[in-house]
Design a protein around this nucleic acid. Structure first.
Lengths: 68, 68
DNA sequence: ATGTGACTTGTAGTCCGTA
DNA sequence: GTACGGACTACAAGTCACA
């Protein structure tokens, strides 16, 4: 349905798994709920740029790396 | 207050004025409300990535050009 | 460890206006 | 043509229980 959100979600998941950390751990570091992070990765929600930056920062990557 | 939103707003305004189009016109093309685009440029709201992409597309630039 | 449903709350985003 | 406000509506943000 929401193509963009799905792509961003996959990029987040890709970067997270490369860092070998779980959703639970990343969610804790980002100070968001584990279940909500899961929804983001599945592209079920259309996140704000602020959230995108927070996640990128936690993953220690540039926010642009999370954009298609 | 919201540093990120302010920076993004200024980048949008910069690109818009370079294209010599008004807020009103850009808002119309992006299919968003005129008053809301004003708030975005003033950094008063934290937009979603979808909106960011729509604005970038309308300005015919890469979304990354709107990120600090 | 992750997916999902069923929520509540906050804010993104709209629509009307005024100066 | 832009800034700013009030009063909405839609949906992102955040929580919890259970599979």
């Amino acid at each position: 349905m929401d193509d963009l959100a799905v792509k961003i979600g996959l990029l987040i998941r890709k970067n997270r798994t490369e860092k070998k950390i779980t959703q639970e751990k990343l969610a804790l570091l980002c100070d968001i709920d584990r279940s909500y992070l899961g929804r983001i990765e599945r592209g079920e929600v259309n996140i704000t740029v602020l959230k995108l930056f927070e996640i990128a920062k936690t993953l220690e990557i540039s926010p642009t790396n999370l954009l298609p």
